[in-house]
Amino acid sequence: MDKVDIPQGTLELMILTILSRESLHGYGISQKLAALTHDVFQVNPGSLFPSLYRLEQDGKLKSEWRPSENNRNAKYNKLTAAGRKQLEQHRARWDRISFAIASVLEGA
């Protein structure tokens, strides 16, 4: 299937969701995203890293350097309490949006 651009404003939601399950480094996040969406979404590192740094500056993420699965030192990103709260808000908003769109498409 063709790749699709990630809809505006949803990258952060997906990053936060992925990081709420496990701490990951940049490459790990992009791999996870591709795997979870069956390669429909492939995040461009030029968008991923700015988002990660922004989230970190906002205190939603914390990072630490530690050896990765294949023994390279990598920067792991971890959700903070503020990040969890942000995720909840994002998620609630997204649920409303997708419900609203589905209502239109199904046109009851």
Partner: peptide
């Protein structure tokens, strides 16, 4: 360093 590890991974 972070981008370098991205490339290596």
């Amino acid at each position: 360093a972070e981008l370098q590890t991205f490339i290596e991974h």
